[in-house]
Design a protein around this nucleic acid. Structure first.
Lengths: 225, 225
DNA sequence: CAGGATCCACTATTGGATCCCG
DNA sequence: CGGGATCCAATAGTGGATCCTG
């Protein structure tokens, strides 16, 4: 079980991702030494972790791109039977304290989404995790329209957060980018400044891409391909 | 119980419609001699019929505008508790035989929708029919954007119908205008020409406006108001 | 905790089927 | 039958809650 080395170019990464298309998570897990859980409840996130190893991402939970030298982020996309994304895509956690000092150009969301390798994975819930197959991968950078959608949502959300109105934010806001809880359970709390700069305790949250958006992105990439 | 005379102008009609805002269907039914059924299943369409009489529409099921001299069609819109349309709006039945010979400018859909009086009626299902109140009415003519949406949908649907592909049409098609069954029950059949001009028997269908569209129209009219 | 995400109860929407009247 | 529509079972979608690993 040799560790897979980090790819040296975008094209090498893409080629490698396309080579594993058709393999199951079980097969791929065996290659990289990860056992795939039988219960799906125990399998949240394992697809992503297997793919990181299989493609040579720098392991570990650093707040840097998965492929550091290439500046590319890896995202697995769970697809339903018709090839559409089943779930939203987590982008990054929100640091309430720093939102007020950041603009879109300097945002973590833009950094994370500037260069992404999308790896689709079958996710019909009746298919056991180990039997789910990897699909055809794509490198994505937002086009102008996509970036405008993201920026518009981000700026409105960031404005609300910076005002200290975090508690008013729900998953309903944002056309393509939304804010949702990102916590081990509903009782988690973190410190955050409120409107007057006083301390308040709020639930940890993250930015997510809506399934309709990632679906449209994939459709565009497939059409070009 | 004197019959209400046909209004002589758009403005008279609108004024009359706004005068009855706030009245219940029970009160209005009493005025025009229509008893409101207690069971809601027995009440499909009665709101429309009461309002026709209350506003002086030319009675009867002719394929002409409800207000013949004004060229105005009357449509009641059932609203949920938040003021949004609960149901789609029937526009007209489809004559499969004549679709092929008609363009958008000559279509029944455009004729029916060129000038409409929308009369909102409360329709929370827990409120008995007789207690549902009439809301504020609006005269509508499609603006350019609205007409483009309607025309685009109509042309695609008409094309499919004219080809004889009626059986491939489902309620899924059309962004704002859709085709759905319009029959007393699922076994109804009518004669229609198929692709080769041969006879086929198909279910009677009609054009309907989606609730999201009538909701957007009402929002626009209210904003101006 | 940060990073990898999915679960699933609930709500909203859909669209095929149906009902009344003249 | 044409004109007035609504019913409601099934599906799609949302978004708060949750799970695993290093």
């Amino acid at each position: 079980m040799l560790p897979v080395p980090e790819p040296l170019s975008d094209q090498e990464l893409l080629a490698r991702a396309r080579d594993i298309a058709g393999l199951t998570l079980g097969e791929l897990g065996a290659r990289v030494g990860v056992e795939v859980p039988s219960e799906s409840m125990r399998g949240k996130g394992v697809a992503g972790q297997i793919l990181e190893k299989a493609l040579g991402a720098t392991a570990g939970s650093r707040s840097e791109p998965d492929f550091v030298d290439l500046g590319i982020e890896l995202k697995t996309i769970p697809l339903d039977a018709r090839g559409k994304p089943k779930e939203s895509t987590f982008v990054c956690s929100i640091s309430l304290a720093t939102m007020a000092d950041t603009d879109w150009e300097g945002s973590t969301v833009l950094k994370k989404l500037s260069n992404v390798l999308f790896v689709p994975v079958e996710a019909a819930s009746e298919t056991p995790l180990r039997n789910r197959r990897v699909g055809r991968s794509y490198l994505w950078a937002p086009d102008q329209e996509e970036e405008t959608l993201l920026r518009t949502d981000w700026e409105r959300l960031a404005d609300t957060i910076a005002r200290g109105d975090v508690e008013r934010i729900t998953g309903h806001l944002g056309q393509v980018l939304q804010v949702r809880p990102k916590a081990p359970h509903g009782r988690s709390r973190r410190r955050a400044p409120d409107e007057e700069g006083a301390v308040q305790w709020t639930m940890p949250r993250g930015f997510y891409l809506r399934p309709a958006f990632t679906g449209a992105v994939l459709a565009r990439l497939r059409a070009v391909d």
